[in-house]
Every structure is written in C-alpha cells, then in structure tokens.
Amino acid sequence: MKIKINGEPRDLSPPLTVAEYLATLGLEVERVAVEHNHRILPRENFAEAQLADGDTLEIIQFVGGG
C-alpha cells in the first residue's frame, strides 16, 4: 500500500497499525504527535489505527528545549 509519510511516498505492507509503524522507526511514543489523514491521532488510538492505501501520515518528533 502507498502511504505518504511526512510528505514522502512510502510503500508499506499491510496490515500495519500506526503503533507498529512507529515501533519500526524506534520512536518514543510519548514524544511524538501524529496526524493521520490531516487529523490529530490521539496516542491511545495508535495501536488500533490501521494504515490503508492512500493514507497520509505526519509524524512530528519533539526534542526538549524551550
């Protein structure tokens, strides 16, 4: 399935949830915000959010400092 992730096209194998994809990147879940198809995805829904062909995903990784 074709998914646009942070503006870049990616080809991923279904089935895949957002939580599973974040795990493949080794990201700490509590430091990211995810927009799935232009809507914020609450982190408690990462595990059940299935990615589908044509989806867009924005993964915003935060680092500390302010």
Binding site: E30, R31, A33, I40, R43, I60, F62, V63, G64
Partner: peptide
C-alpha cells in the same frame, strides 16, 4: 514548552 513529551501532549 520545554519538555518533549509535554510538547507532544499539548499539540495532541
């Protein structure tokens, strides 16, 4: 904010 997790929490 300063802390990364707080930034993510606020945005969400």
């Amino acid at each position: 904010f300063d802390a990364a997790a707080q930034k993510a929490m606020l945005v969400e």
